[in-house]
Write a protein that binds this DNA or RNA. Structure first.
Lengths: 230, 230
DNA sequence: GGTTTTCTTAAGGTTTTTCTTAAGCTTTTC
DNA sequence: GAAAAGCTTAAGAAAAACCTTAAGAAAACC
């Protein structure tokens, strides 16, 4: 168990799953079949994996959800295997953190080559501990619960306020222009009307400073935007 | 040399090469076109690259040879771009050390996603900080934090000053006319009144020379404009 | 369907940057 | 080496950017 390379195969079609298992063991790796999303989650949480092959079309929990969960909670490389041919799906998967994408029907040799390539890339990588918390000064943001704490005391924020603070905290050194903020939080094109942002910023600051009057969290960079104060 | 992300594009078709260059610079990276295998080799040996896009069908030195050379002599990730549809080619390329494979005709969004994904992977592997820095002499500009440092000491610039310096630093050898500067920084048409630029330039220079009196950073090219002093 | 929360709009005030002006300086050209 | 063109500096004026507050509109929730 120690030196083996463990590959989790999440694929509901039994034939395809078996085929993948065969390819993988022939290449000297240890396959583990999972036939549904829920089953996959159990395996994912039970041990450390070296690679995940993931079918996007699954009964129960969808492949997309699993992908999101995996990339959020761990560092395991993921290769998507799917019949979906649309480019957009591919792009979404790659952007969501997938490492490669193979469309069905696939070629045995190709799968094998991609698995090798992917593992080769990751072999040297050290694992990074991932948490669902972001911290800055005495601010703690729980991105699962979507709550913010100042000195352990919860700070009640509205959705917009939370999103703004999240953006700032996700890149602590980065200056976010109003256009940046607007497009990230509102998901609309920004065309110069920044007053809404001013007001939200002001409200957010008021709440923060009420929670801890001795600390300033958000800095204004004149003519540029906002940034977390270091 | 600065810390921008340099991507070498080895593709003999000028239209495709130009398209790729556009995609890449729009994503914030620095593209360099090479139109033949021999040209590519020269560039490959002349500097460090962050990513190579390689067309397999090339005049002169073949893509396969370049791929072999690159993977043998360096660690640079390579994405293959090719019209060859056969799986065997893909497999060979992946086995030979390529990191990804895109077949022509390709989708702009897909190329962009794959480049991002590939760079992200490598950055994690090398444990590289994702800060976006431009350097020139002892000037360091952090384009995320929008800060400038001279010998490690922060230089406080206004938005306009920052933009001017950014423009100069983004093309270290280029001479910017006042019209260039004005149109880039002010985003308005320039019609002859250059005094404003004079004043800003002067203020910028004053701050720079106060931070380091022994160095001159901006050069005036008489009758033409300004340039970073080498 | 009504209540409550959240968001947006608008206006007034403050701060900071940018622009304009003008005089003095430097480099090029003739 | 003098005239012309171009550049720098400084200071006050103007403009832009930003902050806060309050109230009406919209949305979310029950």
């Amino acid at each position: 168990m120690n030196d083996s390379v463990n590959i989790l195969i999440i694929e509901d079609d039994e034939d395809i799953n078996r085929l993948l298992c065969n390819i993988i063991s022939k290449n000297g790796y240890t396959p583990k079949p999972a036939y549904s999303g829920t089953e996959a989650i159990i395996y994912l949480e039970s041990q450390k994996w070296d690679l995940v092959l993931l079918d996007l079309m699954l009964p129960g929990l969808s492949g997309e959800e699993i992908l999101r969960k995996v990339t959020k909670e761990s560092n395991v490389p993921v290769i998507i295997i799917s019949a979906k041919l649309e480019t957009q799906t591919k792009i979404d998967a790659l952007r969501a953190g997938a490492d490669d994408y193979i469309t069905k029907p696939f070629d045995i040799e190709e799968v094998s080559a991609r698995i090798d390539s992917c593992l080769r890339r990751y072999r040297r990588m050290a694992d990074m501990p991932t948490t669902n918390q972001i911290r800055h000064k005495d601010l703690v943001m729980d991105t699962d619960a979507k709550k913010v704490f100042v000195n352990g005391k919860e700070l009640k924020l509205t959705a917009r306020e939370y999103e703004i603070l999240f953006l700032l905290m996700s890149s602590p050194k980065k200056v976010f222009t109003k256009a940046n903020l607007f497009e990230s939080v509102w998901k609309e094109e920004f065309y110069g009307d920044d007053n809404t942002i001013n007001v939200h910023m002001s409200n957010l600051r008021r709440k923060l400073s009420k929670a801890n009057p001795n600390e300033e969290y958000i800095e204004t960079i004149w003519g540029m935007g906002y940034r977390l104060k270091t």
